[in-house]
Amino acid sequence: MLPNRTVRETKETKMISHLNVENLEIRYNVNAAEPAITGVNLEIKQGEFVTVIGPSGCGKSTLLHAMGGMLSPSSGGIYLDGIEMARPDPRQAAFVFQDYSLFPWKKVVDNVAMGLRFAGEDKKVALEKARAELGFVGLADKADKYPGELSGGMQQRVAVARALALKPKFLLMDEPFGALDEQTRRSLGQELTQILHDAGQSVVLITHSLEEAIFWADRIVVMKAGPGEISKEIVVDEPWPRSLEFMTTARFDDLRAELFHRIQPTTASEAK
């Protein structure tokens, strides 16, 4: 039933794209004592699944927004295949935001088609693609509902479909399941991340969950606060497909322990 997404294939047939963050500094306020993030260097290759973890307020969202061209750097820059990302381009990097960001006044299918319409796609074609994308995330039968008629988990799947509809090179997800209850969060997270993985979609995923950060990652970016910086990058070289068994291995435990200590200082304050 799943349409055959072809980024894996692209990887072999076309040049692989690179998203480069170079010496990035972001200040929200010129007078602020401390930048939100500083000295960030990061390279992401198409096809990679990168997770970002770090204490609350360390600048994860800031980094992600900057990577998608939503913030202008105070210094340094973001480059896609060597070209500076001056403004958001959802065909290059598309967002899934943390809060439910669907438009409640539009039907689900129109929400998904919206990005395509903004990009100048013909209405009919956009709606067809939107329906296909909804099928991809398993929500074909909800196309003509309004977002308010869907559960939180379904709404986030719609937001994923909205981003995927543009066939972005990079999918930027900011704690997409953060607002869901534990149960939904697990099952939906598993399901969606699996789909994205199978499709070879390049993903940058911000998460608070140590398990999520390790299990899905080709690479984990660990950030620290004050000022926001990357404190470590960890390559997770466990081959794909990964079974749940991976979570029971010593390697997984070691990684979890390492992450736990690295983000420890503020975990107490964010136990909300």
Binding site: M70, P88, P90, A94, F103, W105, K106, G115, A119
Partner: peptide, 26 residues
């Protein structure tokens, strides 16, 4: 947050007025 979505998805000024502002204030 709706305007932010519009920005992220490359909405033009007119599209923002028509699809987002008009819808949100409807």
């Amino acid at each position: 947050r709706y305007l932010k979505v519009g920005q992220a998805f490359g909405a033009s000024a007119q599209a923002t007025d028509w699809h987002i502002r008009a819808g949100a204030s409807r």
